[in-house]
Nucleic acid binder design. Structure first.
Length: 220
DNA sequence: CCATTGATCGTCT
DNA sequence: GACGATCAATGGT
């Protein structure tokens, strides 16, 4: 993928690529295992890495909240491929959000990366996110996480498990079962009752919960 | 702390 | 043409 230069910095040499077999299995299992994993991104200004503290599972074509629910489109095509690839989409006219494609090929499941802790490249992360008032806010929420890492739509399709990629998913510190919490997904208008949001209990980098608020446009 | 609201545009109906 | 897998600013408790 074009545009990114490897810098060799960050935490890469301390970790290994995440296991594609785990990502290729049931999406809920993959999501749970992604807690504590590290997403490391090289860019022209340096490397930033985030350890994941909150994720959300989307179960392909059988999940009304999934981008793949109504079948393959130009936007969601990468979701129908193998696990371990990046899917970045644009929402609300201004924000990017990142997913890792999970599950067997053609199932079109994905895990939304909702929040994490910056573990490398904090200076660059702060430059990208001047509104952040604390370190824990830098990647607290899916659009903030994408922004902190500098990820945009053209990064879609990157193989996160290829050590040569500029965007890499690495093993991190395992989160023990006792610290894993589940709850309803955030901001989704349908199937919000399914407890497929998964996070690290008590972690200050986890995003605040907001139920879906679909606001009507004011008639002119 | 909590609730409300404007911003802004790609995507799919 | 309507609607978001959201954020930041604002104002109240």
């Amino acid at each position: 993928m074009g545009g990114r230069e490897g810098t060799g910095g960050g935490v890469g040499r301390l970790s290994r690529p995440f296991d594609r077999e785990i990502l290729s299995g049931p999406v809920l299992t993959a999501a749970r295992e992604l807690l504590g994993a590290v997403l490391e991104v090289d860019g022209p200004r340096g490397t930033v890495a985030v350890a994941l503290s909150e994720v959300e599972a989307y179960a392909g074509m059988v999940d009304p909240a999934s981008h793949a629910y109504r079948g393959r489109t130009a936007r969601n095509g990468v979701m129908f491929g193998p696990a371990g690839f990046l899917y970045v989409y644009f929402v609300y006219g201004m924000h990017w959000c990142c997913n890792v494609v999970c599950g067997p090929e053609d199932e079109a499941s994905a895990v939304l990366l909702r929040a994490g802790r910056v573990v490398a490249g904090e200076e660059l992360a702060r430059a990208r996110r001047p509104a952040a008032r604390s370190t824990t806010e830098l990647a607290r929420g899916p659009a903030r996480l994408a922004s902190t890492l500098g990820l945009v739509g053209t990064d879609t399709g990157t193989d996160l498990l290829d050590p040569a990629s500029a965007i890499r998913l690495l093993t991190g510190t395992r989160v023990p079962d006792a610290a894993v919490r589940h709850g309803p997904r955030v901001g989704v208008a349908v199937a919000a009752d399914v407890p497929w949001r998964i996070w690290v209990d008590g972690d200050p980098t986890v995003s605040p919960y907001r139920p879906n608020t679909r606001r009507r446009r004011i008639p002119t």
